[in-house]
Computed example of a mutant assay.
Amino acid sequence: MAFTDIGDVRLFHTDDGSGDTTLLLVHGLGSDSCEWVHHIPDLATRYRVIAVDMRGHGHSSAPGTGNTPRRMADDLALLCAELGVESCVAIGHSMGGQIVSHLAVEHPSLVRALVTVDPGYGFAGATAEYLPVLVERMREDVIGVSLGNEEWTATAATPGWLREWHRRRILATPPHVLLQAFEAMFGGPDAMGLRPASEAYLTRRACPVLTFWFDPAQAAWEAGLFKDPHSKAVLWEGSGHRLHEERPGEFLIVVTNWLRSLP
């Protein structure tokens, strides 16, 4: 079935392909699992691929509370148990990078390896000072601020269709979900999106990590946190925030080659 009831939420998910390795695909804030349509057909020829609409997103239900990355990670652990998944490679973009990192730290026996794509953590300096300000602004105009925040995600090379697709996904996401998730990432008491909280939490990831960044400073910073020798930071300068959607073919090559290199 495409829907599974997990506690207070009903999750939509797809389950394609087969193989000894299961890939768990996790989208970003204000998106859904359609974010992976360019990747699923190819990956499903080699792996079992599970793509999920996180709580409050896409076709999954939107509880009034609990729409945070930590809770979403717990949802994934419960979903994996329902689907008979004992080990997986968790792949997360943006907020999804936080979610899969929570999954790896809090459920280490489940996560064999991580792939994070321009993840929503590790911000410092002026950006770190500005993100809590955005949280306060979102309280007054969630959709307007969320759409405005989209401006930094693209470059001149980002296709117009991709910008429009994500604009429409934001418009389709319940405002309370956008606010709760964003605040939990950058403004709440357990937020791990800003340094030094990011460093304290991410160093608890013991598994191999492959991370993609368009910012050289962020890539170098995360490389310094790796615990497993098979971990790797990939820098794609000139890409936008959704680099896996802008360059899906290259993304698939890098990810599959890295997965093959793991013990």
Rank of each mutant, 00 (worst) to 15 (best):
D5R: 14
L11Y: 08
F12V: 05
H13V: 01
G17E: 07
G19P: 07
G19N: 09
D20Q: 11
D20L: 07
L24P: 04
L25A: 09
V26E: 03
V26A: 03
H27L: 09
G28K: 05
G28D: 09
S31W: 01
S31A: 15
E35R: 13
W36K: 12
H39W: 08
P41H: 10
D42Q: 14
A44M: 05
D53F: 13
S61K: 11
G64D: 15
T68Q: 01
T68V: 03
R70K: 08
M72L: 06
C80I: 10
C80D: 02
E82F: 04
L83I: 08
E86Q: 11
E86N: 07
E86T: 14
S87F: 07
S87H: 13
C88D: 01
C88H: 04
V89F: 01
A90Q: 06
I91H: 02
I91Y: 01
G92Y: 03
S94Q: 03
I99S: 02
V100G: 00
S101D: 00
H102T: 01
H102S: 01
A104R: 07
V105E: 06
R112T: 15
V117H: 02
D118I: 05
P119K: 08
A124G: 01
A124M: 13
V133Y: 06
V133E: 12
L134F: 04
E136P: 09
E140M: 02
D141K: 12
G144L: 07
V145Y: 01
V145R: 00
S146M: 08
E150A: 06
A154V: 14
A154L: 08
A156L: 14
T158E: 06
T158H: 06
P159Q: 11
G160Q: 15
L162S: 05
E164P: 13
H166Y: 12
R168A: 14
I170P: 00
I170Q: 04
A172V: 14
A172K: 13
P174C: 09
P175D: 10
Q180S: 12
F182W: 09
A184W: 07
M185Q: 04
F186P: 00
F186G: 02
G187Q: 03
D190L: 07
A191R: 07
L194I: 00
A197G: 00
A197C: 00
S198E: 00
Y201D: 00
L202V: 00
R205I: 10
A206M: 14
A206E: 15
C207F: 07
L210A: 09
T211H: 10
T211M: 12
W213Q: 13
F214Y: 15
F214I: 13
P216E: 04
A217V: 14
Q218Y: 03
A220N: 07
W221F: 11
E222V: 08
G224C: 05
G224S: 06
D228P: 12
S231V: 07
K232G: 01
K232Q: 15
K232Y: 09
V234E: 15
E237W: 05
S239C: 15
H241D: 08
L243G: 05
H244E: 06
P248G: 05
G249C: 03
F251V: 02
L252D: 10
T256D: 13
L259N: 06
R260Q: 09
S261T: 12
L262Q: 08
P263W: 04
